[in-house]
């Protein structure tokens, strides 16, 4: 019993982290119907920016994390400017191919600057026993920040003018620009916001496990699976999907040997794509005049 409560707690923490990264992803997807392949790699960069500021420059962790988030948001802006905006009306696969390029570029940068080895943040973890469950100070911090981020995001999307414009653009980008919303600006904001969320999630991942330049790919895969699981068109879909994925992964490992963990994750992605709601496909085909 205790064992399973512990699994559930771990699922909530990993699921929450995936969910936070995936929300950033689903924001971009819901507006542009664009698979931002670089998203997981951006999260990885966020993780390392925080590392650079906190460990290499010796700043206090919270300031370093905030700085990492800001830097990552700027990175999101640059990616939009370089690899997405000029290609929006190009050959239909060009933006996807370009962000794949960006993704691997980021990975090579991380490999060069921080090396391929495993690093970790310089933080002392203290373990508590609470109602028979083991939880660390870091995990408590993650849970609180997760909750705060979600509340802040909800407020931003639902209660502010920018949020309103984002929602309108997500509903119908053409309509939104007709009523005077500067869709280019919204796209930039969404890229920045999405990247910032990825940085928060990436830093959490670094805290929960460790830092590795090669995790980008699996983070991208997991956030896409989360977005599809949670349902499209809904900005919060990724959050729900991330939680589901967190549970699937942690529970799956209780049944199968740990080495198959990644197999399960990608298997879930595959199955999820296969059983996606058919309405979505219809929507894509309508858009799908691929060369137009």
């Amino acid at each position: 019993m205790d064992y399973y409560s512990q699994v559930i707690l771990n699922s909530i923490i990993t699921g929450g982290i995936y969910g936070l990264i995936a929300v950033g992803y689903s924001m971009i997807y819901s507006i542009l119907r664009f698979v931002n392949f670089s998203h997981g790699f951006v999260a990885m960069m966020g993780m390392y920016f925080t590392y650079a500021l906190s460990v290499q420059l010796q700043l206090p962790f919270f300031i370093a994390a905030a700085g990492g988030i800001v830097l990552t948001a700027l990175l999101g802006m640059i990616i939009e400017r370089v690899a997405y905006r000029p290609l929006r009306f190009s050959f239909y696969l060009a933006p996807l191919v370009a962000v794949v390029g960006v993704a691997f570029f980021l990975e090579s940068v991380a490999l060069m600057v921080w090396g391929g080895g495993i690093l970790s943040y310089d933080i002392r973890t203290i373990s508590y026993k609470f109602l028979g469950l083991y939880i660390t100070n870091v995990q408590i911090g993650i849970l609180i920040t997760l909750l705060l981020s979600v509340i802040l995001l909800y407020y931003l999307i639902e209660k502010t003018t920018i949020g309103q414009a984002i929602r309108a653009t997500a509903d119908d980008i053409k309509m939104a620009s007709l009523v005077g919303i500067n869709s280019n600006r919204i796209v930039v904001i969404v890229f920045m916001l999405g990247s910032a969320l990825a940085a928060v999630g990436g830093t959490f991942l670094g805290l929960e496990t460790n830092l590795q330049p090669t995790i980008g790919l699996s983070v991208t895969a997991k956030s896409f699976a989360a977005v599809i699981l949670g349902g499209f068109g809904n900005i919060y879909g990724g959050l729900v999907g991330g939680l589901v994925l967190g549970f699937a992964e942690n529970l799956g490992v209780t049944v199968l040997p740990t080495v198959w963990k990644d197999f399960i994750a990608f298997g879930v992605l595959f199955i999820v794509i296969y059983f996606k709601p058919s309405g979505l496909l219809a929507k894509r085909q309508e858009r799908g005049g691929r060369y137009r």
């Binding site: 698979v35 696969l93 996807l96 895969a221 990608f266 595959f270 794509i273 996606k276 496909l281 894509r284």
Partner: peptide
């Protein structure tokens, strides 16, 4: 189609 095929093959 499109992106889904790409992701399914990747998985």
């Amino acid at each position: 189609t499109g992106d889904y095929f790409a992701l399914a093959t990747f998985a």
